[in-house]
């Protein structure tokens, strides 16, 4: 068991209180039915692990408040929205590298771009 949690220690990774609230809101509204974190979850919406840096805070807030396309307008309180955005920021901080940051070798291994 501790074999596989080794390598998960990174500095500054523990969730703050606001981020923890966001996480609880995530669970209460079952975002996982449609979204993944680190690839785990439902597949209707995009993986949100990197959403914070890809889309920016203002966009995330707007999406949560009003919904967009197939993303429903969920009845979220302002606190929940702030928490969720903070939580996505935390996810982003420990996300795997983005497409621009990696290259694929011909034999199929992913490497960080020089």
């Amino acid at each position: 068991m501790f074999v596989y949690t080794r390598g998960t220690e990174r500095p500054g990774q523990a969730l703050s209180e606001t981020q923890m609230e966001g996480k609880l809101a995530w669970q209460k509204h079952n975002c996982s039915a449609c979204h993944q974190r680190f690839g785990l979850g439902g597949y209707m919406g995009p993986d949100l692990t990197r959403a914070y840096s890809r889309k920016g805070e203002a966009y995330l807030k707007a999406v949560l408040e009003f919904g967009v396309g197939n993303m429903p307008k969920l009845a979220l309180s302002d606190d929940e929205i702030d928490g969720l955005v903070a939580y996505m920021k935390a996810l982003d901080a420990c996300a795997p590298p983005a497409r621009e940051e990696v290259t694929f070798t011909w034999y199929g291994v992913v490497k960080p771009r020089e």
Binding site: Y4, T8, R10, R37, F38, C94
Partner: peptide
């Protein structure tokens, strides 16, 4: 639960 990577790995 306080550490997203650890949580995801265990899950």
């Amino acid at each position: 639960s306080g550490n997203p990577i650890r949580e995801a790995t265990v899950q």
